[in-house]
């Protein structure tokens, strides 16, 4: 069955025709041209497809597109209206990624964490990012970058 879904995507209203069983990831990538969420597994196991729905990180590959009716969906594209965010800058400075395929998912999960908890401890960082798989980096620079963000926020009194 076809449905018309209306939602807010990266700050702008969108309207799109979808089938009942269509996944948000496919709709974002193939119908709306938003390609930062990646296909890594399609079954919710890797985190490469992470987006924020009303501020919460979700795996768009196991979210039906019809579920986002009326919601706010934010992908990596929508975070950077003013250029790279503090988290992104820290990732850049620390060479946090290698192949980079997991990077958008990590940025989204990290963004959710910092919104909720601006200066997390290292173990809080690790727990928040545990659903994002990276095969290349061994995660060291990702953690280093996030520790820097946390420290900076602490110094800024956030």
């Amino acid at each position: 069955m076809n449905h018309t879904v209306k939602f807010n995507l990266n700050g702008s209203p969108v309207e799109v025709q979808v089938k009942s069983n269509e996944k948000l990831l496919d709709v974002l990538r193939d119908k709306l041209g938003v390609t930062s969420p990646k296909f890594g597994c399609g079954v919710g196991e890797c985190g490469a497809c992470t987006v924020l729905i009303d501020g919460l990180s979700v795996r768009s590959c196991i979210t039906f597109a019809v579920e986002v009716e009326g919601k706010n969906v934010v992908s990596l594209e929508g975070l950077q209206a003013d250029g790279p965010t503090k988290i992104q800058k820290a990732f850049i400075k620390n060479n946090a990624f290698q192949c980079g395929f997991c990077a958008p998912g990590f940025v989204m999960s990290a963004t959710e964490l910092i919104e909720k908890n601006p200066s997390p401890t290292e173990e809080e960082i690790r727990h928040a990012l545990a659903g994002n798989l990276c095969r290349c980096t061994g995660y060291k620079n990702i953690v280093d970058a996030m520790n820097e963000v946390s420290q900076e926020n602490k110094e800024e009194g956030r």
Binding site: P84, I92, G100, V107
Partner: peptide, 9 residues
Amino acid sequence: LDILEKVTG
């Protein structure tokens, strides 16, 4: 060289 394009999507 390629970190910016990777972190910005």
